[in-house]
Design a protein around this nucleic acid. Structure first.
Length: 197
DNA sequence: CAAGTGATTAGC
DNA sequence: CTAATCACTTGC
């Protein structure tokens, strides 16, 4: 079942980031084939107070504008001249919190992901934020897309107990001073598709 | 371990 | 306008 607006509107962003583990990300192709994967790794970005967030201090630019949308909106940005990153805006309008989807486990139409990614072991298909965007065909055209619409959405899939998950510091944000060490990255223990490093 | 790649941003 | 930076990936 598709996740409802209320799921994304809750105030506890860290809780939502953990709750997203086990959910299914679905992006249908133009021909209507469901390409999907189970979320296995997320990172929370707490908007105004978080020095690692693009929206730190409520910084409002052309790019960060999307983060001020209502919870349940897709936030896509381009990084390092090559890769897109898929984020989910959460919370009320003008509360610029977002959750980066760092890795998923392929579920439906894995052959389409293989075509898009090229020849490589399946465990490399979606085990990183840039990789999963390539495998799912997510680009800037998905920015500001409503996750309750029919272009990209989330569904209930599996439930994991808290002891099957764990958390740690976020990746690639060493510039964020006292926020660099916050344990705001969440992942499933023993899952092959969690990003390496 | 280093290079690659170009949008985005801040600062003039 | 310019230059530095970057929530990454791949191949040496």
């Amino acid at each position: 079942m598709k996740l409802k607006r209320e799921f994304f509107l809750r105030e506890d962003t860290l809780q939502i980031a953990r709750d997203l583990l086990g959910k299914l990300l679905v992006v249908p192709t133009a021909r209507g084939e469901r390409v999907s994967g189970m979320i296995v790794e997320t990172e929370a970005y707490l908007g105004a107070i978080d020095k690692a967030a693009h929206s730190y201090g409520n910084r409002r630019t052309k790019r960060t504008e999307t983060m001020f949308s209502i919870g349940g909106t897709a936030y896509i940005f381009f990084i390092y001249g090559m890769y897109y990153q898929f984020n989910i805006v959460v919370g009320a309008i003008d509360t610029p919190h977002a959750i980066l989807i760092r890795a998923v486990e392929p579920v439906e139409n894995i052959d389409i992901m293989r075509e898009r990614r090229g020849v490589m072991p399946d465990k490399n298909l979606t085990s990183g934020p840039g990789k999963l965007c390539l495998a799912f065909g997510i680009d800037k055209g998905f920015d500001k897309e409503d996750l309750l619409g029919d272009k990209v959405w989330l569904e209930d899939y599996k439930n994991f107990s808290v002891d099957e998950t764990t958390s740690g510091k976020r990746i690639g944000i060493d510039y964020a001073e006292e926020f660099a060490a916050k344990p705001w990255r969440f992942w499933l223990k023993n899952n092959l598709y969690v990003s390496k490093r």
